[in-house]
């Protein structure tokens, strides 16, 4: 039974490959689905929609977003990994996909074997913010305070293993202190406790924290981007402060099922990179605290591998066990 199924699958694959040159040239002839592996409304989802809109204009076919949320992107990724490699079902992924390698003991797909990279799309800088009752005016104060009160402060995150958690732990180990981790569900629910001083500092996306900074409820002390953020005059980057290891951000990109014809990948790659250069897209992304982060398919592949190498040991050293 299994043999015959394999045989049929093989035959279908062969048929598809045989047809590939002709259909790859005409691609796309019908609408494309981008699977967004998270619930609608978050900033990654919105970025996926901004790219879908711009790419559909240059590809000349409608692109719909299908939100397949859940299990930290796993369910959506799985759906694309097993989809037909014809360029009509692709994945809009975030850095979660790499962090998942250290979070989940068993994944039903192989990030490096079941996907062909298309392009990176955008990156979002993170910022360090403190509650206003904390007696620190700038990052130097913060380091001093943290070293004088090891283990006394606490910070929220969007869940264990989330980038907001890992960055805070990295920061504490960089400055040689420690603080208690308090997980929340989702990015926004951490703010009431942070504003009222029940938790003390947090690393979060610039877009989510800037309104509280402008209103005086929180103070942003440093940003993880390479350049300072225009909306935050006078706030230094971590690199300027002497912590280059903290220069990281959450990133996003597009992946296709493995075996997608190279001509199709090339068309998608061009569409994505054109979108990232479109002033309207740049402006729309900017409203969500995101910066375009274009790359070739090849570079994206290398980037994925290097990110996996970088985060794996960090997560292990933080004591995060795959479940």
């Amino acid at each position: 039974m299994r043999l015959s199924l394999k045989f049929i699958a093989g035959a279908v694959m062969a048929a598809c490959l045989g047809l590939a040159p002709a259909s790859a040239q005409d691609y796309p002839t019908r609408s494309i689905t981008i699977v967004a592996p998270f619930a609608a409304g978050g900033s990654v989802d919105v970025a996926a929609r901004i790219f879908a809109e711009a790419m559909s204009r240059s590809l000349g076919q409608p692109i719909q977003i299908e939100n397949v949320g859940g299990a930290g992107s796993i369910l959506g990724a799985q759906r694309v990994a097993t989809a037909a490699p014809d360029g009509y079902t692709i994945l809009y992924n975030s850095s979660n996909l790499v962090l998942n390698l250290s979070l989940y003991a068993k994944l039903d797909y192989d990030l490096f074997k079941d996907f062909d990279p298309i392009a990176l799309t955008a990156t979002g800088p993170q910022v360090l913010g403190v509650t206003k009752s904390l007696p620190v005016e700038n990052f130097t104060d913060f380091v001093e305070y943290a070293r004088a009160h090891p283990g006394e402060m606490s910070f929220p995150s969007s869940g264990p293993g989330n980038i907001t958690h890992i960055m805070c732990e990295m920061l504490m180990s960089e400055i040689g202190s420690s603080a208690a981790h308090i997980p929340y569900q989702g990015g926004a629910s951490q703010y009431p406790d942070l504003i009222s001083g029940r938790t003390h500092f947090a690393m979060a996306s610039a877009s989510s924290m800037i309104p509280f900074h402008q209103n005086g409820e929180l103070r942003i002390l440093a940003v993880t981007s390479e350049q300072p953020i225009p909306q935050l005059p006078g706030v230094p980057t971590f690199a300027e402060l002497g912590y280059p290891n903290m220069t990281v951000g959450a990133w996003q990109g597009l992946l296709a099922p493995a075996g997608t014809p190279p001509e199709i990948i090339a068309k998608l790659e061009k569409a994505a990179n054109d979108a990232a250069a479109d002033p309207k897209v740049i402006e729309a992304l900017g409203r969500h605290g995101l910066i375009p982060f274009p790359s070739t398919a090849e570079k994206y592949g290398e980037f994925l591998a290097s990110e996996a190498k970088r985060w794996g040991p960090i997560m292990t050293s933080m004591g995060i066990q795959p479940q």
Partner: peptide, 24 residues
């Protein structure tokens, strides 16, 4: 405050942000 109480509120916030208004 810009703090959504439920998923519907989160979506409304996203709508506002898309329009260039940051709830808060």
């Amino acid at each position: 405050l810009g703090i959504p109480g439920n998923s519907v509120m989160a979506l409304m916030m996203a709508t506002l942000i898309m329009q260039g208004i940051v709830p808060g």
